[in-house]
Simulated scan of single mutants.
Amino acid sequence: MLPSEDPLPLSALNDRDDSWTVAEGTHGDGPMIVRINTSAQRWAGHPQLGIRVGFAIPLNHPNPGGLPDAEENRVIGELEDRIRALLKEGGPVVHALAITTGTFKEFVFYLKNGECIGPVHERLRAEVTSHRIQCMAYRDPAWEVYASFATE
């Protein structure tokens, strides 16, 4: 069965059983680490998950020649969990990528309900005082950004 033919049961989008792999590259003059949800491949291109949203978090202590320090990475990891939980309240969502450089960390999701993005972003901006959270959403029915990392 093709992903586009699969129904979209919320129980199947349970991220507790996700499998992740890590790819390394460069971004600007420093390293880039990309965590790729290999389990998301099952849902790539699903017609009900055609909205891509990225939550980018600029680092407070950028390190263009390296990666974030352990403490800042821990705090941003907690933000990652919070972002995912808030998006899930809006409906089906797949956490596809986590991109880390020495200047920012970005979490990429594919979801059904684009109407939840603005309220989630506003809620995060109100709740989070440790970092500035940026948000961009696009229609990406072919999951092009995910594919650009998952196939490398």
Rank of each mutant, 00 (worst) to 15 (best):
R74H: 13
P58S: 04
E127R: 02
T38P: 05
D18E: 05
G77H: 11
E5P: 01
I57E: 00
N60T: 10
I57N: 00
E71L: 06
G118H: 00
A150F: 04
E122N: 00
V53S: 02
L13I: 11
P47I: 04
T21M: 01
H46K: 04
P119T: 04
I83W: 08
R84I: 06
E115T: 01
L59D: 15
A147S: 14
S4E: 15
A126L: 05
A12L: 08
S19N: 14
E78S: 12
S148A: 06
F107E: 04
D15R: 02
V53A: 10
S19L: 15
H27D: 12
A142Q: 14
R132N: 12
V145F: 13
A98M: 11
R16Y: 12
G118C: 01
R52H: 11
L87Q: 09
S11D: 15
H27N: 09
Q41T: 01
L86M: 10
I33E: 04
G65A: 01
W143S: 00
A23F: 01
V34F: 07
D81Q: 08
G50F: 05
N60V: 15
E115W: 00
G50L: 02
Y110D: 15
H131V: 05
P119G: 09
L13V: 04
A137V: 11
L59N: 13
R35H: 15
T26H: 07
T21S: 06
I133T: 00
S4Q: 15
E71T: 04
H27R: 11
H61L: 11
I133W: 03
F149I: 11
E24M: 02
L87V: 01
L10V: 14
A23V: 14
T103F: 00
R16E: 15
V93F: 00
N60R: 14
H131E: 05
P64C: 03
G102D: 09
N14H: 06
S19G: 13
L2G: 00
D15W: 05
L2T: 11
T103E: 14
Y110G: 01
T26I: 11
A142W: 03
V34R: 10
G77Q: 04
F104I: 07
R35M: 15
V75L: 15
I76W: 00
I133R: 00
G30I: 01
E71D: 13
S19D: 14
G25N: 10
G65P: 08
D140M: 07
R52D: 10
F55G: 03
A126N: 12
A98S: 14
I76C: 07
R42M: 05
V53F: 04
E72R: 03
